[in-house]
Structure formats: structure tokens, C-alpha cells
Design a protein around this nucleic acid. Structure first.
Lengths: 342, 342
DNA sequence: ATGGATCATGAAAACCTTTACATCTTCGGT
DNA sequence: ACCGAAGATGTAAAGGTTTTCATGATCCAT
């Protein structure tokens, strides 16, 4: 009683006076069917309100037109915007997106693989930075990975195609911006040996300084894991050591926020006394005081490109490149001013 | 070559030396099968790595164990946390979640209904505040709506079950908090005749004032659509009119942010000269200066409850209530101080 | 006319389950 | 010793498509 028995392809066939095979063809390969018949079929479809049953179709075709998105944290500010891009492109191409929030729990990761195994999803988008636990287990011989594309973070030690921002280039542009404002003592907050993203951004920072003929003071490079708290802690540490920069280049906006909070608490007048830059342009970057000058990640584009690449993979194409790097954009706000001192 | 022909129920049956019906039963209704057989089947399953093909299962059973989540804007700060709750509960119960970003586009809304029509999704979670375009079209007689639950915003003019925060009560608590700090001239920013949420929160504000024997000054109630810009504009308008409160109760955090930006720009010392409260506790509420005192929505809980309710509906149960209201929590930060003047 | 393409269509298999119904065992009670 | 009930298993249908292969029809070139 819930649904009044939807029309099937047989109903349509009966009304149009053709076989179900012809109906199927009229819908999926219209050119393969005579004009007159096609019209009759279309009319019958309209009359019955027929839509093809996706389950039956998937069963037969062994593909679901679904993409599984695996993310460790759906709340991540980077996530939602990339998701919009992913979803937009997917739906434009007739695909649906399934989302799995793994919280980095191996069990949940492997649990979600059932979607792949049972053909409920044709491909995978990975936000996690690593292969889901349980995938590629028996991959000694030929890799038997499902089609997938990494996003946000590349998958370590693997050939999984990745689309993301050019972190090196972006950080270089950021550092050059600070240099162009007369800063010569620029700190980098967010050194990390484990996070690939942090490493690349630090490289960009170093390249910019080297390019400007500035020497790198190792005391101005501080550890950080990308959290607001790490930015705060690093700043406090600088004051303890009393080795101060004129500008802070932070590995991301969250870190920059920590720096700003710390400096505000110390009653410094920003950006007059210290300049701060972030990276990402997450939503609150424009709301902080002072509003944050940062590098904007083209998240929508990242999502679209990633989905596009995945669908190409699904279509059997070999990816042209295993890494697609998009350019970030300098967003000038109020957290950077000309260096007031050496 | 992509996948090496997954094991089917027939393979398992052959190995275990039973019929496929028995295998199916051994898996789905273990008690209906003799212990010895069950063991043999389990062993065969383990050996083949068999997982049941969800497509075939769905086709036969006419249910997909999928829930479609329709949201107008995946980027909405309220969205992601509720989503976590939805997803957690769904996956705990063996359901997957499909997400559809509609951008309030009627075409996209009705397009997504194909998931429901073709049994690709069993139920619907609505963030949109209205029925998807195309649903309930022929509902003159008996309503033929798919099982669904509204979240974030109730569906206007309908009996769609809703789970959300108690806006009236929350706003009342917020206003009482301001009153308890000695404020007697409290503005409400975010009056709206079209948004149900705004209306309820305004009612809570009025109730609190009335309860404290304070008269309501209509000049202190300003329009607002819940955007940061509307908060800024309302504040500016107050200064133009020169009718000033000692505290601002805002319909949500985004609005409160606009108020704070405006007051900061006018160089007021917050919270000494003006107190500001928001509603929602979105992520940047703690990062603003001054950090925002607000009412926290139990988003995780909302998501879980909503999914729980939907799954109950799916199981054929009649919902006990058509509206589940959860309590919000007062989060005291630094944007409210005792009233310094009358 | 005739032979061979080309084109339009139909019959039926295959995709993989779940489940109603039938069959066969087994067992307890008389 | 027999009957009936209960329990375990198997057979086959149904769920709704897509697609291979076969069949007929049409058409063009010889």
C-alpha cells in the first residue's frame, strides 16, 4: 500500500505494442530504434510515468552509478566544500554519492568496503590519506584496487591518483607576499615530518626565502600539527625563547587562528606589530579579527576534478597523470601589513 | 579483469553441499538451519569471501537499506554535525546514507526523487524545510508520501515528523541569561515573518521579557534573515535611529557575528559596553573576539534521533509524536557581561 | 531476379537474491 | 507400529533490467 506498484518496462512494452527489449533500446540507445516506434515508446513512458528500476539495472549491468566517499571527519571545514564539487559533478553525470564517516576507525573503514564489494558503489573518493583498512590486502601480485581517487590528502606510498592544491607553489606565493611587504624575519608554524601537506608547504616557504636571498633561521621554524592549539603553543614558545619574527606564515588557517589568539591575548596590535598568514581560506578566516590574509584552496574545483578523474577511471581510461595540482589564490585581508621593523 | 568474478551464493552452496536456499537462510535466519549445516555454510562463506550482492538483494526485497539526505546547502555549518549524527546512527543499523545537494533547485529536488522511486533509497531526511518538488503531487486522497523526517527546519504545512531543537525554550533561556546579568534593554535581531525558526526564537525572547516583567520596546526588535550581513545592517540601523540596547540577542550566531563586527568597527569595548548573544554554537563562535556566549544545538543528537525516527517509520511503526524537540545548552563565553548602565 | 548487407525487432538468458511451497526426516505420543 | 507434528532442506518463481543471438524485412548492387 505504500507505493502503488510502479510501472515496469513490461507495462510500457505492452502499451507501446513492442517487446521489452525494444523499450530498453528506445530509452538507452534511441538511434537503434525506428523513429515511429521510439515515439510510441516515449508516449507509453510518459503515460505510465515509468522510470527504470535502478536496482534491476545495477544488478544486470554490474554497476550502481554510485560513488562512495570515505572521509575521516565530515565536520572538517575542508570537507564540505570539496563535497559540493564532488556531488555536483557526480550528479551531473548521473551518479549518486554515498558518504561514509570513518573517524579513522579501521573497522568502520573496512566495513564500508562492503559497498564496493557488493557493487553498491563503483568507485571511491578518499579523504583519509591512506587506503581503507582491508583494501589491497592481497595485492602482492597484480594490484586489485577498486577505482579510486584521493583528495585533500594524497595516499601515502601508493599510486592512487590525487587531486589537490599545489601546496608548494601556494606556500611560496604566500611567503613571497610577506617578503614583498618588507618582511625579512618570517616564521613558519607547522613543521611536521609526518604530514605530507605540511612538508610541501614548508618547502614552498623555504623556496621563497631562498629565492629572495634570505637566510633561513631554524629557530623560526616551529612544529605544529595543524590545530589551533598548536598555533597557540608555537607562538607562546617563541616568546619564551624570545626569538621573534615580524611575520608568521602558518601551515593552515586553523594554526593561524591560534597564533592570532595568542598575539591578541598579549595585547599586540595586529597587523601593525605582527603580520600573520594562513592557508586554506576556511570560512571563519574572514571573521577573525584581524581578518586573515591567506591562500584560498579551490575546493569546489578540487571536488569536480576529482570526480571527473574517478569517472574517467571508471570508464576504463588510464589517467593522464597520477597527480592533479590546482592553483591556490592569494586572498588579501587585514592580517598582513608592511614590516614596521627589521 | 577489474574484479575477479565475486563468489555468489551458488558457489557457497556448492562448496557447502547444500542448496542456495539453505545458504540464504544460514546467513539471514541462522536459527532456521541445523547447527552442522550452518557450520559448513559459514566455513564455505569464509573460504570464498562471499558477501551477498546488495543489488540482487535489494531488487528482490524491494528495499535498499539506503537513506537519502536532501540538503539545500551542504556547506551550512549546521549541516555537517547533524550529518555525523545521521550517519552514525544509520551505519550502526546497517543503513547507508546518500546525499543530495539541492541548492533549492526544484529540478534537482525532483531529480533526486528517482532514488526513492526506484527503491534506491527507502526513506528521506529533509533539511530543506519543504517537500521536494514533485513529491506528494497527487496527494488529494490518501497521502502517498515516502517515509521521511525533517530536520533543521520543519516542513511547512505538513505532518512530516520533525526533530530539532526547542527554539522557543532555547531563546527564552538565552534572554533570561541576559536578564540575570542585569540587562533590561535587550534587542532581538532577526525578526522574520517567513522563517519559522526565527519566529519561535522571537517568541522565546518575548516570553522571557514578559516573565521578568519587562516591557517590550518594538524599536529594539529588528528584521534579519539570519545572515552575518543582516546582523551588521541591523546594528548600523540602531545607531542611525539612536535607540540603543545594552544587550543584543541574535537569532543565530551568524547574525551575532555581524553585530560584533559592527560594534568592533565602532571601537566599542566588548562585552563591557554591549553584550551579545547568539544561538546555535557554530564552530567559529569560540574564535570570534569576544568569544560568543550562545545556545548550543545538540546537533549530533538531532541527527541520531532523526535517523532513529525514520528507521522506526520504515519499520512500519507509527511515530509517537510528530515533533521531537531537544534542549539546547547555554554556553557561556566572553560576549556577555553585567549591564553597566540602565 | 538474386545475393548479401543493413536495419529493426523479438525471444530468452543472465544478473543474484529471497521466499512460498513442497518434500523428506525425525521424533514423540498413543 | 502408526499418525501427526515439527524440523530441515530443496525447487522454483519472482524481482526488473540489459544484451546476445536469431529472425524478418528492406534495400542496394549486380
Amino acid at each position: 500500500m505504500q507505493q502503488q506498484k510502479l510501472a515496469t518496462i513490461e507495462d510500457v512494452a505492452a502499451i507501446a505494442g513492442v517487446s521489452i527489449a525494444t523499450v530498453s533500446r528506445a530509452i538507452n540507445e534511441p538511434t537503434k530504434v525506428a523513429d515511429a516506434t521510439r515515439r510510441r515508446v516515449n508516449e507509453a513512458v510518459a503515460r505510465t510515468g515509468y522510470t527504470t528500476n535502478a536496482m534491476a539495472r545495477s544488478l544486470r549491468m554490474r554497476r550502481s552509478n554510485m560513488i562512495l566517499i570515505l572521509a575521516p571527519d565530515v565536520g572538517d571545514p575542508n570537507f564540505s566544500n570539496i563535497l559540493v564539487g564532488l556531488e555536483t559533478e557526480a550528479s551531473k553525470r548521473g551518479y549518486g554519492v554515498l558518504i561514509g564517516n570513518t573517524q579513522n576507525d579501521p573497522e568502520r573503514e573496512s566495513d564500508y568496503l562492503r559497498f564496493i564489494n557488493s557493487n553498491q558503489a563503483d568507485g571511491l573518493i578518499l579523504f583519509t590519506g591512506h587506503l581503507p583498512y582491508g583494501v589491497g590486502a592481497g595485492e602482492e601480485g597484480g594490484t586489485r584496487l577498486p577505482p579510486m581517487v584521493a583528495v585533500n590528502e594524497p595516499v601515502t606510498n601508493s599510486a592512487v591518483p590525487y587531486v589537490g592544491v599545489d601546496n608548494f607553489e601556494g606556500a611560496r606565493i604566500a611567503a613571497e607576499h610577506l617578503i614583498s611587504q618588507g618582511h625579512r624575519r618570517i616564521a613558519f608554524i607547522g613543521h611536521s615530518t609526518t604530514k605530507a601537506v605540511n612538508g610541501l608547504r614548508e618547502q614552498g616557504y623555504r623556496a621563497a626565502l631562498a629565492g629572495a636571498g634570505l637566510s633561513i633561521d631554524p629557530r623560526l621554524i616551529l612544529d605544529g600539527d595543524g590545530t589551533t592549539e598548536s598555533g597557540r603553543a608555537a607562538t607562546e614558545q617563541m616568546f619564551v625563547r624570545d626569538v621573534l619574527p615580524t611575520a608568521f606564515l602558518c601551515v593552515n588557517d586553523a594554526t593561524a587562528l591560534g597564533v592570532i589568539i595568542s598575539l591578541n591575548a598579549r595585547k599586540y596590535d595586529l597587523p601593525r606589530e605582527f603580520s600573520v598568514m594562513g592557508f586554506d581560506d576556511i570560512s571563519f578566516a574572514s571573521f577573525v579579527t584581524p581578518s586573515l590574509t591567506t591562500m584560498k584552496q579551490p575546493r569546489l574545483k578540487i571536488g569536480e576534478e576529482a570526480m571527473d578523474l574517478l569517472l574517467a577511471l571508471l570508464a576504463g581510461e588510464q589517467p593522464a597523470r597520477t597527480e592533479v595540482l590546482l592553483r591556490s589564490e592569494l586572498i588579501v585581508r587585514n592580517s598582513v601589513s608592511r614590516a614596521a621593523r627589521e
